[in-house]
Amino acid sequence: MGFVSDTKMRVIAVLGLSFGLFLPALTSIASAQTCNLHLAKAEIRATAPNAPVTGGYLHIQNNSKKAQRLVSVQADFAQHTELHEMKHEEGIMKMAPLEKGIEIPAGATVQLKPGGLHIMFMKLTAQLKPTQMHKVKLVFDNCGEMRADFMVVTKPASGHSHKHNH
């Protein structure tokens, strides 16, 4: 290993520093312009008359190089919505609100499906009947708002997949 001259060192340092400062700015602009989030299988569980709550499900595929976080959801038919995670432990069904939202890591697909992550639509203002379509607004921390058409179904797909995305 030879010694690196002082000027060479300085050039490398300056270059490195400017790249270090410039690159994050560049990538954040790029991801803001093209979010590369793909939404699929958006479904809401049909409800009984005057039922106060229901669950919403979808697959969110993040094709970008940056993690995205679903932070909130809004729908015309619900006065309040939350993001929840359901856990089945020793025969007991437990539900926990996710105050930080749901993260979709870069390059990953997160499935909101029965028995796990879901959108909890609360204080419903209308009965949700099978085959109805409803527009739902999804808010992501970096991408901002996206709208998706959710179909009302009696039995949402449980998303039993043989692929395991971790």
């Binding site: 106060p52 669950g55 879901h118």
Partner: peptide, 13 residues
């Protein structure tokens, strides 16, 4: 309970 979004309607169905 009726405010149950998932396991109750699923089990009933």
């Amino acid at each position: 309970f009726t405010h149950c979004p998932e396991v109750c309607p699923t089990t009933m169905n």
